[in-house]
């Protein structure tokens, strides 16, 4: 497993000591930066969740209120709906779709024909376009594409006779989540694609060739040879996109601000509204801590299920 035992001769204790210390030295710089940057603020965030403090009094200590903020968050009837929205509609749906679509697109773009025709670098760059579009512009452009009357999407749907009149997708409860998810998946898909593409590139072509010579068809090669090799990368992508999406505020905020009504309210917009509309920093921080705890639990379970296997 490890290179340590084989490469550390027993008669050099100093060297052994250095070898033992080496992993710590290697990871130390990153850990120091992360500690400097995150430790203090995270503790501040947790402490804030136990206080009643106005946005305008950030320089002072708030009134300590114990678990009141948490009690409020957990008993607020809207929290349940926000939690379902965040988990199901915002996170699970888009993470699953991104993985499926991203994997399919990556496998397609990894076809040898692109490199043989010297198009590889081009398609790998074109795929980035949605991702490098600033979110505020991406959402605005999508709103125009989805416009009830003039938007390309509605004109197309009316044109092919699928609907009689344009649908204001973001204004209706039946379509609003689909519209937000489309925007999110559109913009975030490239990240999944290029990450998988990079992993595919590092799979030696000899492996496929060998399988092919053994008589495996293309489908078998993809599922039996390629997919298992992609597993570590897919595991990391799934973990991180889940956390990022769960905490994501931008798409819902730019597209609907949580509306119509409170139909698309998610935990991140609830936290923002509590902190910066109601000016209640303590209560907002409590929403944040609840979110962190949920994701921490998820990460721990995920970590032990996926990474323990090795």
């Amino acid at each position: 497993m490890s290179v340590l035992p084989t490469s550390a001769p027993a008669e050099e204790p100093a060297h052994v000591w250095g070898k033992k210390l080496e992993p710590y030295l290697l990871v130390l710089p990153a850990m120091l930066i992360l500690a400097f940057f995150f430790a203090g603020p995270a503790i501040y965030n947790i402490a804030l969740a136990f206080q009643e403090l106005s946005l305008f009094d950030l320089g002072r200590e708030g009134r300590w209120v114990g678990f009141d903020n948490f009690a409020e968050v957990l008993t607020d009837p809207s929290t349940g709906q926000s939690l379902i929205n965040t988990t199901v509609w915002l996170t699970v749906v888009t993470v699953v779709l991104r993985l499926v679509l991203g994997l399919g697109l990556a496998l397609l773009l990894n076809a040898t024909v692109f490199s043989r025709w010297k198009l590889g670098w081009l398609v790998r760059s074109l795929i980035l376009v949605p991702w490098v579009t600033p979110p505020v512009v991406a959402v605005a452009a999508w709103k125009w594409l989805l416009d009830a009357r003039y938007g390309v999407v509605n004109q197309f749907l009316v044109g092919i006779g699928a609907i009689e009149q344009g649908i204001p997708f973001l204004a209706r409860t039946s379509t609003v989540w689909g519209a937000i998810e489309t925007m999110l998946i559109w913009r975030e898909l490239p990240f999944v694609v290029i990450t998988i593409l990079a992993a595919l590139q590092s799979i030696p072509s000899e492996l496929r060739e060998a399988a092919r010579i053994d008589g495996a068809n293309e489908f078998q090669i993809q599922t039996r040879i390629v997919l298992p090799l992609l597993k570590p990368v897919l595991a990391v992508i799934t973990l991180l996109t889940t956390i990022w999406t769960f905490n994501n505020f931008v798409y819902v905020w730019l597209a609907t601000r949580g509306g119509p009504g409170d139909y698309t309210q998610v935990l991140a917009t609830q936290m923002y509204t509590t902190s910066f509309v109601d000016y209640r920093m303590g209560a907002g921080a409590a929403v944040g801590v609840v979110m962190s705890l949920i994701m921490f639990a998820f990460a721990l379970i995920y970590f032990f299920v996926i990474f323990r296997e090795k």
């Binding site: 204004a171 209706r172 409860t173 949580g258 509306g259 119509p260 009504g261 409170d262 139909y263 509204t273 509309v277 109601d278 000016y279």
Partner: peptide, 17 residues
């Protein structure tokens, strides 16, 4: 806070919730 509340509930009526 009042603004947020009013806009939210009017939106809830407009969208039929």
């Amino acid at each position: 806070s009042m603004t947020g509340l009013i806009n939210r509930e009017f939106g809830a009526v407009f969208s039929g919730q």
